[in-house]
Amino acid sequence: MIPIFDYILLIFLIVAAVISLKVKDLLSASMVFGIYSFLICLLWAEMGAVDVAFTEAAVGAGVSAVFLIATVYNTKRRSSD
């Protein structure tokens, strides 16, 4: 655990979460959600949970963003809110 790194990452995390919910373009929202997943992966590596960080890097930042993009491609890209 590295406290300063932890605080900075947590603040970034809130910012990324808010942006991914505020952006009206769903493709951008999916990408920002990928960034959110990557930040939280860094956070877990910092807290010593390396296995969880590894899983999150593969699953959250990789595959789940691809799933979201595949759905956005097959449906609509604009969102009303």
Binding site: S20, L21, L26, A29, F33, S37, I40, L68, S79, D81
Partner: peptide
């Protein structure tokens, strides 16, 4: 509160990561 279904799912994922945090 979000109206778009994909936004709802992103919110659900954020909820889940909060629990893991």
């Amino acid at each position: 509160a979000k109206n778009n279904l994909i936004k709802k799912l992103i919110g659900m994922s954020i909820f889940q990561t909060a629990i893991i945090l």
